[in-house]
Structures are given as structure tokens and as C-alpha cells.
Computed example of a mutant assay.
Amino acid sequence: MRMRECFVAGLVALSLSSNAGAEAMFETFESDPASSWTYLADTVMGGVSAGSATFERDATGAFVRLAGQVSTDNNGGFIQVRRSLSKRLPSSTEGVRLKVRGNGDTYFVHLRTKGTRLPWQYYQAQFSTTSNWSDIQLPLDTFKPSGQFLRQTPRAETITSIGIVAFGRDHTALVDVHEVDWYEAAR
């Protein structure tokens, strides 16, 4: 009986450790993403961009689609889908990992931190899309501050939200995001 209990305990421990990686995944858009992701556009500041963030599924799985017309008219120029973080990231976090596809344009990830108190403050890194799913890694040191009064590089433990953004020029946006994750330095 004692040997059997040890075997069962070992299986439970193995199961928990193999699920730890799955739990570390920040977002796979499988479980009620509409409750945590919010669509925003420059219309909140008088801009005229129009779009949507829809949660969809195809043969590859669940994803969010950010689509619309970005216009720089009226000092506008963005549409985005954003999520606030419920937990702080560990300071060992090195960057953001995404699985994306799109219409071949360049898009951005915006990070907000405890130090980005004004609505127009963020840290930004860009990524390009193709019509096929691609894995993208964006190290935190590639994120640039939106203004001179922010730190040069965001600190992981201060990040409060992440946004996927079509930004800065007149264009038709279409980007799908299948996964959002954080990664740490290899040990």
C-alpha cells in the first residue's frame, strides 16, 4: 500500500509540474477573453478611426482579430485591444512572446506600467505580420517610451497592461493574435 501511495503522489506531482507551463501562458483566447480584453480607438480623444476586436476560432484554435480603418484625421491614429494584468510579472521576465498573423503590415505592442499615468504614455515595440502564423519575441529592452519623462526600458514587475495596436498612419488594419505570453531568460 505504501508503494502505491508513493506512485500516486508521484503521478500527481508530475501532472502538476507538466501543467505549470500551461498555467504560465498569459492568454490563448480559449476561456472567455471578452471579459478581460477591451477594444479602444482614438475616438475617445476625438479621432475618427473605426474598427473592432472580435474573438474568433478556426482550425488553428481561438484568437482575437483586431481589424479596421486607422485614420490620422483629427489628430487620431489608432485602434487597439488591451488587457490589464491581474498579477505582477516576475522581475526576471525578459520580454513578450506572441503568435500572430495578419495582412503583411506592421503592428505594435504597447505596455503600460505604474509609471505611465497619463493616457498617452506607454512603451512601444513593433512587429510585422504575414498571412501565416508566426512566433514573435519582443525583449523588454526593445520597447521605447512614448515620452521623455519615462524610464528608457520598462521594468517587468511594474507592467500593468498590454495592448495590441494598429497605430500611427492611415491604413487598413487586420491582425490576429493566437497567443500572448511572457518569457524569462534561459538559465
Rank of each mutant, 00 (worst) to 15 (best):
residue 93 T to H: 02
residue 88 R to F: 09
residue 109 V to W: 03
residue 113 T to S: 03
residue 77 G to S: 10
residue 98 L to H: 04
residue 119 P to Q: 00
residue 62 A to K: 14
residue 99 K to C: 01
residue 116 T to V: 07
residue 107 Y to K: 04
residue 50 A to I: 06
residue 72 T to Y: 06
residue 83 R to Y: 07
residue 51 G to P: 15
residue 124 Q to N: 07
residue 128 S to Y: 13
residue 44 V to G: 13
residue 116 T to E: 01
residue 78 F to Q: 03
residue 86 S to C: 01
residue 97 R to A: 00
residue 83 R to G: 00
residue 76 G to D: 14
residue 84 S to C: 02
residue 81 V to H: 06
residue 123 Y to M: 05
residue 123 Y to C: 05
residue 77 G to W: 04
residue 122 Y to L: 08
residue 58 D to N: 09
residue 65 R to P: 12
residue 70 V to Y: 10
residue 77 G to E: 01
residue 65 R to F: 12
residue 94 E to F: 09
residue 101 R to T: 02
residue 127 F to H: 08
residue 129 T to N: 10
residue 106 T to D: 10
residue 76 G to A: 11
residue 122 Y to Q: 04
residue 99 K to Y: 06
residue 89 L to G: 03
residue 84 S to Y: 04
residue 66 L to R: 08
residue 114 K to L: 11
residue 44 V to S: 15
residue 68 G to A: 05
residue 86 S to Y: 02
residue 65 R to G: 06
residue 90 P to W: 00
residue 84 S to E: 08
residue 51 G to D: 03
residue 92 S to L: 02
residue 77 G to T: 04
residue 44 V to M: 15
residue 55 F to A: 03
residue 79 I to F: 10
residue 73 D to I: 09
residue 108 F to D: 03
residue 74 N to S: 15
residue 46 G to P: 14
residue 108 F to W: 12
residue 85 L to R: 00
residue 128 S to M: 14
residue 80 Q to T: 03
residue 96 V to I: 11
residue 72 T to W: 05
residue 50 A to G: 10
residue 114 K to V: 05
residue 98 L to K: 04
residue 56 E to D: 12
residue 80 Q to E: 12
residue 124 Q to G: 05
residue 127 F to V: 03
residue 104 G to V: 07
residue 131 S to D: 06
residue 61 G to D: 10
residue 54 T to Q: 06
residue 113 T to E: 02
residue 84 S to W: 05
residue 105 D to L: 10
residue 75 N to L: 12
residue 47 G to Y: 10
residue 94 E to G: 07
residue 52 S to I: 12
residue 103 N to S: 07
